[in-house]
Write a protein that binds this DNA or RNA. Structure first.
Length: 132
DNA sequence: TTTCTAACA
DNA sequence: TGTTAGGA
């Protein structure tokens, strides 16, 4: 009953999250602006991240390396809602899990669809070759 | 001293 | 994305 609260409990300040994720403060704040993470705030308006926020950021970092842009990352993250979010908005668990293969499959589909039409794809750069 | 927001020679 | 100004 408190395993979940542990993952969602705000415990890390910016400096720690930077070291843990290897991302810059600028990037972390930017991703928050784009709703990829929702760290809580202290009385002094300082961000406090939970373990889930950190894991989420690590996944964002991973997808970034694979050449997925923010729009794509949003989609992937939205496919696995349970992972984090606030304890407040949590009552029942719609339970779900997404394997890496599922994500790959999704990304590949995005790439193919983008090829059919114009150019716009959620996947950028040459890294998309991993899906060819 | 650390983090925050806003903005760009 | 980096970096910096100016404040808390």
């Amino acid at each position: 009953m408190d395993k979940e609260i542990r993952r969602t409990m705000p415990v890390f300040p910016m400096s720690i999250v930077q070291k843990l994720t290897g991302l810059s403060a600028r990037q972390i704040r930017y991703y928050e602006q784009h709703q990829l993470i929702h760290p809580e705030r202290t009385e002094g308006n300082r961000r406090m991240f939970s373990l889930n926020d950190v894991e989420r950021l690590l996944e964002i970092k991973s997808l970034l390396d694979e050449g997925v842009n923010l729009a794509g990352i949003k989609h992937v993250l939205n496919m696995k809602p349970l992972e984090n979010e606030h304890p407040s908005s949590r009552s029942e668990h719609p339970k779900k899990d997404l394997s890496n293969a599922d994500v790959m499959k999704y990304l590949k589909t995005e790439l193919i669809e983008a090829g059919k039409y114009g150019k716009s794809s959620l996947i950028q750069g040459e890294l998309s070759r991993f899906f060819h």
